[in-house]
Design a protein around this nucleic acid. Sequence first.
DNA 1: AGCCGATAATGAAACGTTTCAAAAATGCTA
DNA 2: TAGCATTTTTGAAACGTTTCATTATCGGCT
Lengths: 341, 341
Amino acid sequence: MNSKPTILDVARRAGVSVGTVSNALNDRGNVSAARRENVARAMADLGYVPNRVAQTLRGGESHVIGLCTPVTSSAYFAALLEMFEDLAARQGYEIMQVLSHGEPALELRRVQALVGRNVDGLILIPTHDSQATLDLLAERGMPTVVVDRVARDPRFDYVAIDDRRAMREATQHLIGLGHRRLLYLVRDTRLSTTQRRIEGYRDAVRAARPTVTGAVIQRDSDEAALARQVADAIAVPRAPTALIASNSALALSLVRILQQLRVSWPDDVALLAFDEPVWAPIVTPPLAVVRHPTRQIATEAWNRLLLRLRTPDLRPKRITLQAHLVPAASLGPPRSTHRAR
Amino acid sequence: MNSKPTILDVARRAGVSVGTVSNALNDRGNVSAARRENVARAMADLGYVPNRVAQTLRGGESHVIGLCTPVTSSAYFAALLEMFEDLAARQGYEIMQVLSHGEPALELRRVQALVGRNVDGLILIPTHDSQATLDLLAERGMPTVVVDRVARDPRFDYVAIDDRRAMREATQHLIGLGHRRLLYLVRDTRLSTTQRRIEGYRDAVRAARPTVTGAVIQRDSDEAALARQVADAIAVPRAPTALIASNSALALSLVRILQQLRVSWPDDVALLAFDEPVWAPIVTPPLAVVRHPTRQIATEAWNRLLLRLRTPDLRPKRITLQAHLVPAASLGPPRSTHRAR
DNA sequence: AGCCGATAATGAAACGTTTCAAAAATGCTA
DNA sequence: TAGCATTTTTGAAACGTTTCATTATCGGCT
């Protein structure tokens, strides 16, 4: 019990030197079939499991990839983790995940922990200000792929969706349906993701001025305050006829708030969410969303990181993916148009 | 760039020996204030980060806790991970998560990977048959807390909810509302969690026999097949008046299916889910659930594991927590009773 | 000034691998 | 069978820490 046989134990039992065991283990050439056989048996008998820690210390490669995300409770991040873990497992890597809770200082500490553990590379979903973290990583020459959410830093690879375009197209779609007064709900305007989405939104609104107006409401996670704000925005005479939530969590809040206010969609307002909550198809009526290409993001980021591990001085690259509108019954023409018919 | 200063570099720069740096770093006694100061400055200048790998190799403790779960895309597991990560970060640990996808063979391989990485301890959410994994862990004397889902193995600590009781009480509640024909949808009957829930369900049904009957439908993730089965079950003359889904994913499927069949709740059937999907409050009408005490599970498991790390030969213990019914509008009296009024 | 007991600082061993130069064994050829 | 070229095998160094037995330094007392 509690035995941890080492390579030395194996060597003794097989009657060979540690060097030979190591060679057999990593099947390098130069080990005769007989020895190889002996060693294999000895390993099996003892239940030997190579000590990755020692391997790492000696060899320099840990075969651990760090993953730093704000949280995991969001379905999007959980899905990313899951995909990375699968990719990793297939290729002899482990994932070590660490949470920043969106706070720069905490992120730095947690990433430092990863660095101290000799991760081979890192996938980072940054906070609104990851400068310190990025500086650390650049200084250490840590292979890193940044996903989403931050102004571009020329030292790193990026995988991101084209938020601006996706949001512009979504907004145009709403305008095309006849909506003239829009309202966009966002949470953290410090995130470049949010900023780019707002830009896209404004692009579309601007192009249709002055007929179309687009407001933005910013709120942290205080749902009660958000509820008041939404209630106010909707109560005015020329109220918005289409509401857009910038992510799933916000969409959940918004739906709850509208239900409480007894505002229904698409009759009273059209409803759209950026990011795809699992429950989009089952609210009544179903919610239209802008879908993240999650799987693509994960594979692109992973492939890029692995490529960079093999070829460290690759020139940093930005990989941009497209997110698309998935229409559903929550979209409809504005009420006035509706009536006009 | 790409510099990885070691303790030796720090020692040189501070003009002391490596031993002293180590002492200063882990502030052990016997280091004069002056030296301590020097060392601190040298570390800051060089951007020194202790190499955890070397520490682990020498010291035996890795300060990494392994976490093996079936998936992360379920909100329940994602929440557990998140809580563990927070607890870990606070106490100088990292979490290394690994996914079994519910397959015993894969689980074994992934857990072996964790063992090879010298994790100090392990939190395991088993598959339907984790015997091989548990044997491995027991043999290595790996401190392990098992969460949920498996027949008890006397060698390990357990944290689980009282599925049987929770399900019995939930079922009794439905019966109390007047329901006489129940239908329980489950996914994997090989999981002891599922089995115990079914037992609880049967307990309640049996106690109310012969007035009350309770059927069970088992289905893998094939939603189309499930849809047919549900449609059939509901089409018969004396159809069930209350449906229960055994977890969130199943609840999502069920809601979708019922919507398609244009069966509404609570008028046509009462609806209840074991496990709490985020969307429970926003489907119309809101879904009643049996809520997992997720936070409690996480803290109990974590505390127990840390206790066991400090005191290895603790006697294994089973910690049982209660899950409670959270009523909502999806529960109502059966249609017939309804009409009778 | 010389000693003594504390307190500080040092340096080498050890953790479990991999790697690599060197030694040993083997096979071939003449 | 001696000599040489290969192929196997070996043993020790190295990775970056911690630990611990030694040694050095210091302050306080006679």
